[in-house]
Design a protein around this nucleic acid. Structure first.
Lengths: 348, 348
DNA sequence: TCCCCGGTAGAAAGCGCTTGCTATGGGGAT
DNA sequence: ATCCCCATAGCAAGCGCTTTCTACCGGGGA
């Protein structure tokens, strides 16, 4: 029914071993023989049986990319860059890895499940993107899994997530704290003193770090924070909309709002507009990430640009072992403040 | 080094066969035995060897999702929905498939490469999303590959792409033609007679169908089309920006622009605004797809909503054999016109 | 002339798991 | 009490490929 190595061998009048060697090209085979084998492969339309060769060789050409939400361009852009490097779209020939992206939906259970599945497939590399959860048991479970993966020879890279100690994982962190601090510094510099904050889900490291940066900036400016000024939500537009409304209800005198990311900021803008406020005249809004669509908002969003594509590409190369790990196996990636139309000096 | 089935068997004092049966649960095993085996699995921290079991069982739990551009929410949303159904995020338990998404970058070569890789892995299902290329040789190559896949038992589903004859593939097409026609009808209904069109890449079926719908609407309204009114580009924002500028240069009297999709439309809006035109007062703009960010544009984009998530979910179920194929193995999915602020009556 | 060696090809032993078929044993039917 | 059968468990034969070790062959050096 399906063509096997043996069929090809018979057709080319050689032994299966020879066919295998021609296909893998790691053993001298006479040119004439190679030719004959290749012709047989072509004529029979032979396709290697992946599982069989993975089993025999005890390695696989699978590489996994874990993302929290594939529908979110934040992850899409990173995944795209990673996959380009791993899958060989980047141009390099002979690179026949199957780079696959797995959507965890931000759930730690799913994350573990996918890691197990990848481990089961004996994946060659795994890249985890996006913030981690702070929940200790889960963090420990993930750490244990990562350790096991690196021990069994899988290369593990964390991209845009905090380092995990004692796993062989190489890490590329985003400087969320510094970025958030720069954003709030910018607002403070414009003269804002009453700044609301629509933060992300409490249990994510990304949220924690951005929030901390924000608070550091406030503290540095001698601004005493009001507990009413912070609301939490998810990383989506709707949370931004609702969050902004809530902030306005709690304190109508706010002159600026920093959002957890661009989607949240865009939602906030919509809510503020719907409430009759003009941006930035009545209130300033900032985002984070600088996704493509933040430039189409009117006014365009002031935001912290994260080099998603660059970081992804680097993570991909790291996962392929094509680039040396940074010293200490961890590097921090800086953002860049993009000042656009959504921020201005406060009203009065 | 790594724990194998045999190790577990020894630890639980049963035969390897029994362990396998416990793990796969398709053969009666006494409760006490099962218990013992499960405990051993747990104690030894055993993880099945995927390749080995795939080889022995001649099936795999891998399912592939091919997308043109993972950084584009259009594909991200579909992929997310498909993966949710296949990967079991949807809630169904025991569903341990590894749903992986492969980024082809819109290149037919990459598409073929991934199909081969999936075939090699003996994937259980493959879902192809997004428009196909019209290039005959490539189309034939893809068709041949798909045929081979279905023949070898892989379930193939096309989601948002035209049916391919003589492959066992189940197809969910988007009614691009009808959708585009409805968009242009809307514009014509508002009184527009001079309508520019920023179309997608010439060689994509999606582009062809949308363009055809547009032309049908024009013809039905008795509008004679001017060749200058159509420009081609990619499906991205930049093409929209440049396309709009080009259209304006060719014919400054245009009162409306239909764009290939939302990203293109947003780019066009930016260009028109930069040229000093107001939307929709001076010129109307329409998009296609209704991606989340099109609602944050100001004014919000009038566009044809495609039920990306629904279609993806359905495709996922089809791929899992959890839903019956539509009659004729092909179904057309309709869009819904979302009339928003970016369109209005023409000036004069 | 004989021996040894580099260069190739083949034989065969697994890789870890699934599964058809065979053994076993205790309980119900007769 | 005897026999049969169902419920379980084990045996062993692969699944298709890789890889080590062995076999072979012709040519150059002794």
């Amino acid at each position: 029914m399906t063509v096997t190595l043996a069929d090809v061998a018979a057709h080319a009048q050689v032994s299966p071993a020879t066919v295998s060697r021609v296909l893998n090209g790691n053993y001298p085979v006479a040119a004439a023989t190679r030719e004959r084998v290749l012709r047989a492969v072509d004529e029979l339309d032979y396709v290697v049986n992946g599982p069989a060769s993975a089993l025999a060789a005890a390695t696989s050409d699978l590489a996994g990319i874990l993302v929290n939400d594939i529908a979110d361009p934040f992850f899409g852009i990173m995944a795209s860059a990673i996959q380009a490097e791993i899958g060989g779209t980047g141009g390099r020939a002979g690179c026949e890895r199957l780079a696959v992206v797995c959507n965890t939906g931000g759930s730690p259970e799913q994350e573990l499940k996918y890691l197990t599945l990848l481990q089961r497939q004996r994946a060659a590399a795994v890249v985890l993107t996006g913030g981690a959860v702070t929940d200790a048991p889960h963090a420990a479970a993930v750490a244990a899994k990562l350790r096991k993966l690196t021990e069994s020879g899988t290369r593990v890279v964390l991209c845009g997530r905090p380092p995990v100690a004692d796993t062989g994982a190489v890490t590329l962190t985003f400087d969320n704290l510094g970025g958030a601090r720069a954003v709030t510094d910018h607002l403070v510099g414009l003269g804002h003193r009453r700044i609301g904050c629509i933060a992300g889900p409490m249990e994510r490291t990304t949220t924690r770090h951005r929030l901390e940066g924000h608070r550091l900036a406030l503290a540095a400016a001698g601004i005493e924070e009001d507990a009413r000024w912070t609301v939490h939500g998810r990383f989506d537009r709707r949370s931004g909309y609702e969050g902004a409304l809530e902030l306005l209800r709690r304190d109508p005198s706010l002159t600026a709002v920093v959002a957890a990311n661009d989607s949240v900021a865009l939602g906030a803008c919509a809510a503020l507009r719907d409430s009759g406020l003009r941006i930035p005249d009545d209130i300033s809004v900032t985002g984070f990430d600088d996704l493509p669509c933040s430039i189409d908002a009117v006014p365009a969003l002031t935001t912290m640009r994260l080099p998603l594509a660059d970081a992804g590409a680097r993570a991909g190369r790291l996962a392929m072992g094509r680039e040396d790990a940074p010293p200490g196996k961890t590097a921090s990636v800086q953002g860049e403040l993009m000042v656009r139309g959504s921020t201005g000096a406060p009203r009065e």
